[in-house]
Design a binder for these strands. Sequence first.
DNA 1: GACTAGATCGAACGATCGTTCTATATCTAA
DNA 2: TTAGATATAGAACGATCGTTCGATCTAGTC
Lengths: 214, 214
Amino acid sequence: MYNRSPTTAGVGGMTERGERQKDELIEAAIELFASNGYAGTSIRDIAKLTGRSVSNVYHYFEDKEALWLAILEYSAKGIPERLRAALAAGGPPLERFRNLIRTHLQLSATQQREAKIFHIDEERLSPTGKRINRRIQKEILDIYLGELERLRAEGLVGGGNLRVLAFNVLGVINWHLRWQHHVAGIPAANIHEEMIDFILFGLQGARVHADRGG
Amino acid sequence: MYNRSPTTAGVGGMTERGERQKDELIEAAIELFASNGYAGTSIRDIAKLTGRSVSNVYHYFEDKEALWLAILEYSAKGIPERLRAALAAGGPPLERFRNLIRTHLQLSATQQREAKIFHIDEERLSPTGKRINRRIQKEILDIYLGELERLRAEGLVGGGNLRVLAFNVLGVINWHLRWQHHVAGIPAANIHEEMIDFILFGLQGARVHADRGG
DNA sequence: GACTAGATCGAACGATCGTTCTATATCTAA
DNA sequence: TTAGATATAGAACGATCGTTCGATCTAGTC
């Protein structure tokens, strides 16, 4: 009997080899999605890059978006977890925060392509895809908001709106993805530390500009 | 005789009405490119939104990319000019810089869609398109680098690498495009001033992290 | 060796893509 | 009023898209 929905993606088992092939497909998809975008990447491109057939891709993933979501599952979804892990080390709020940003920057550097996918092209996703994407982004934002409150309690953050400040911080961090290749000759770790300094001093200087309490 | 290449896009004249229609097409294209991306927007979408035929679009623009470049010409290309105009007002370096960022933020707020187009999807463009896009981005970067040097001469910028600092500033500014809709109840002008404070204090705090002179 | 479930393939479907062709309207200048 | 340029439309082309179908191949199990 012919089986509706991918043979192996359902509850039915999957060979160890199958798992390996599936990961290989995800790897290829990450590469292509990151450089050509969602709408700019075809299933055929992914099949060609892995040297397999189009229908074989559909054997592992129900459709194109399922493949996208698998990538999110595979990588981006782990970002909030890792950030929280970095915070779990404890220490004084300032050190915690430095560590948070450092971890975040290292993560972006290691998983450049995944991080890029995570930020582009949201509009082309289905409502479900959007929802998942936004949930992860919100998780990250909340992590930063929580730490900013801690820092403010210590008097290390000026009077600006915390939400605005969090977005400023994320702007510096995420924008890094776009230019990290264009700065040669400086060790990545040094760049990260300079960025951390920029952020911390920026937070300290935040002033209130009326219309809303701190 | 049939005329190769768009009838009116060449040297041959174009009616005043034609100019209006062309602008209308550009307007629609901006709307669609901004919300669906380059690969995600079809010529048919643009034709439908303007209530005209597909071939009529080709009457005004040689191909899809020419339409994209017309948008750049129409809006994004003016950004460096306006930034330089903001600097031309003169004044002490700190005020100049504040004014630069303020102008930049206001421009992004006014031309949200155009600014968004300007930043996404570069990979899908032809070499020519990429070149033009990058030239504009470089112009903007150079404007900031120049001002940062001025500020440093005044002792208002710490010791970090100027290029890194410029990217940090642009990160805060450009990321603003992504979240400005998600902050309600605060006047835009106040948000802008808080962002400017964040940036200026961040610059002051920049420290050298070895391996490169200031 | 036969059975079965997973893995892989080639071909095709209908939809949509960018683009072109050919044919009309519409307008303007002589 | 008519000639010529401009503006617009509809139909079609070949390519590619996401997706499906039916068939074969492969690797274990009885």
